[in-house]
């Protein structure tokens, strides 16, 4: 069966080659641009074109030129032109010039002063979303208002260019831009404060209670941690029990009220970061 298959395939190849002379397909077709196929011979026939996104069937007179519209060849890839009486030719349509940049910038939020945390991936496409596989220079630019942006030109490979970058020291909206010629795509990466640094609190007697308040909470780069961040105040009095409050940062500081227990140890923490410790004497 395999030998028969092979034999027939060889015959078919020769037969197609004989008929192929009837069709002159475009050699440098570009996606989204029209092209034409010239035919030879005489008499009427049916023309078929199959390719990505396309399946045409047209009656024509041999010897005429078949016009293919920009829409017929919208997509890059392999096309096959065939005639019903036999004869076929294949040709490639390549992507057009860059018209779109599909820019995936991640993450949308990033803590400050971290290396290689921002990634940008650009897919270079033509106007019909065909991937441009020829190497293309993509310029990546990352910067925050008030400071000079960093720019890096990179060559795309197989239609893709990518970059990894670190976050800056200042919080704020960083503009992340990718461009090819005059086409550009812009994303925003919000640089946010990192973990609290040097977390400190002070305690003050308030009748039967203690008023606890942190100093303004900042990360190690001096950025204020955002409001709503959880700060845990604890009071431990050995066998006399303990009390805790998960307070929220408001206007840069966190506050809590705990019962006053002389001799108790007061601690403060935010996430996995520990702050200072106070031995409560009872407010004396």
């Amino acid at each position: 069966m395999k030998i028969l298959g092979l034999f027939l395939a060889i015959i078919l190849t020769f037969a197609s080659a004989a008929f192929a002379q009837d069709l002159q397909v475009p050699q440098n077709a570009v996606a989204g641009e029209g092209a034409s196929i010239s035919t030879s011979g005489s008499g009427s026939a049916t023309f078929y074109l199959t390719g990505p996104g396309t399946s045409l069937k047209r009656d024509f007179k041999r010897g005429e030129t078949i016009s293919l519209s920009a829409d017929d060849l919208a997509y890059a890839g392999r096309y096959t032109a065939a005639l019903d009486g036999g004869g076929a030719q294949s040709f490639f349509v390549t992507a057009a010039k860059p018209a779109k940049l599909n820019f995936m910038a991640r993450p949308s939020r990033v803590p400050v002063a971290h290396p290689d945390v921002i990634s940008g991936v650009v897919f270079v496409l033509d106007r019909n979303d065909n991937l441009i596989t020829t190497p293309t220079t993509v310029n990546f630019q990352l910067g925050i208002a008030g400071s000079a942006p960093t720019t890096r030109p990179l060559q795309s490979k197989n239609g893709i260019a990518w970059i990894k970058a670190g976050s800056g020291n200042r919080e704020g909206a960083a503009q992340f831009t990718a461009s090819v010629g005059d086409i550009s795509a812009k994303r925003v990466v919000q640089q946010v404060a990192s973990d609290p640094c040097n977390l400190r609190m002070k305690a003050q007697a308030d009748g039967k209670n203690i008023q606890l308040q942190t100093e303004p909470i900042k990360d190690c780069s001096g950025n204020a941690v955002p409001d709503g961040t959880i700060v845990t105040f604890s009071e431990s009095a050995g066998g006399r029990g303990r009390s805790t409050v998960d307070a929220r940062v408001k206007h840069g500081v966190a506050r809590a009220t705990l019962p006053s227990v002389p001799g108790a140890t007061l601690t403060v923490a935010s996430g996995v970061v520990l702050g200072n410790e106070i031995r409560w004497s009872g407010g004396q």
Binding site: R106, P107, V121, K157, N158, G159, W162, K164
Partner: peptide
Amino acid sequence: VVFYSPEGTALELR
């Protein structure tokens, strides 16, 4: 596989 994006949401193969 010729490319796998840093954040793991896109992958290119030949």
